[in-house]
Write a protein that binds this DNA or RNA. Structure first.
Lengths: 213, 213
DNA sequence: GCCGAGAATGAACCCACGTTCATTCTCGGC
DNA sequence: GCCGAGAATGAACGTGGGTTCATTCTCGGC
């Protein structure tokens, strides 16, 4: 009478998996929960249920709830940083403008601007002021992201007729993207990915006229 | 042996004040607490202690904690909107550029960018995804702010040589300001009010060359 | 001066949630 | 096939925190 199912839907059989797999399962479940109920009311019971696992497993793999949350934040920032680095450290672009286009494309890709992920980002941003650990993770991630954007902008600036204040432009671009993400999250009916991309692009064309071609 | 002090520092005497005063006291205390410990770990005990009042008073004036939080959010958004409206609806500016200058000045004024207030803003933004009530208050506030900025930009656009896409520029400007505020909050060591103002101004000069004078 | 309305207090209550841990189960090595 | 390591479970525990409410206090009207 034992139903054979790949994922053991109704099965009572206990499944044992490596630590890394369980940790990721829990982190992903945490993200879904945060976007559903908010960082301030996520409970361990919800997360473990969402992950389809037992109550005590989170403590087994993360010790404390706070650790799970921190790892969730790290997961999201790392993923973004890896994606951005893949583009900005790549050597196989034929021009800086093409690299820039890839960057914008990436920043407003479905994967990055997915509601679940952005909800998590901003939930932690909102708590960062009062939690040194979150603060540090966010600051480090932002700094890393900013550095590589600045490098690209330096290249692009050198190609322009008029002199460009790379520092100010980088700060402005990063703020613009953050603000667009926020809008995308808070008013998805009013701001769309396509619209946001166009706005970003308008900013860039204003600063680096040569990319207009 | 009874020391007469205006604020009855050590006095045991019970003070009775009008509802509106108590409500504001509690709201201000809530803001300080949120910026200190974060929205997700604010407790009624902390807030009432911070306000120098008794445990039960919050429930007396707000019924539930949730109401106090909502009123706190409303307090912050209303204050901002009133300040912005004072500038953008004023008839006593000699030119649109002057009005624009006043807007930027206001948006990066100490009063608006004060750490306490911005922490509150972003704390609620972070929870807005999962709380329809916060979501609505934020969206309404943003929409109102955007409308009046768009009106000013329409005026400014009409003065330029080349045609300006007012919609995209408004969206961009608002996103830029939000992003700069976020930076100001998360990395106050790296981003300063003056720097932020300069970045905003650079954006505006790019879009509306005529204001450069 | 007295009284009623309602503002203010804080001890007590109760529940939700994080954490613990005794027990059960799985798997690989021998 | 047996055994030990450790992964997984979920009932039970303790506590922190929101809410209630009986009581006390203040003030304005008469």
């Amino acid at each position: 009478m034992q139903t054979k199912t790949i994922d053991s839907v109704a099965g009572k059989k206990r499944v044992i998996l490596p630590r890394a797999v369980r940790r990721q399962q829990l982190i992903l479940a945490t993200m879904r929960c945060i976007s559903k109920v908010g960082l301030s009311s996520v409970t361990m019971a919800q997360v473990t249920k969402e992950a389809g696992l037992s109550r005590g497993i989170a403590n087994l793999h993360f010790e404390r709830k706070e650790n799970l949350l921190i790892e969730t934040l790290r997961f999201v920032t790392d993923e973004y940083n890896r994606g951005q680095a893949d583009i900005l450290n790549a050597a196989n672009f034929s021009s800086a403008s093409e690299q820039l286009a890839a960057l914008v494309q990436f920043q407003f890709s479905r994967s990055v601007t997915e509601a679940t992920k952005m909800a998590v980002w901003f939930a932690f941003y909102g708590e960062a002021t009062s939690r040194p650990t979150y603060q540090k993770i966010c600051a480090d991630s932002d700094a890393r992201a900013a550095r590589s954007v600045r490098a690209l902008f330096t290249q692009l600036g050198a190609m322009q007729q008029a002199a460009v204040n790379v520092g100010a432009v980088t700060d402005g671009y990063i703020a613009l993207i953050d603000g667009l993400w926020l809008n995308l999250l808070l008013a998805p009916k009013k701001m769309t990915r396509a619209k946001a991309k166009r706005v970003a692009w308008t900013f860039l064309e204003g600063v680096f006229p040569s990319i207009k071609a």
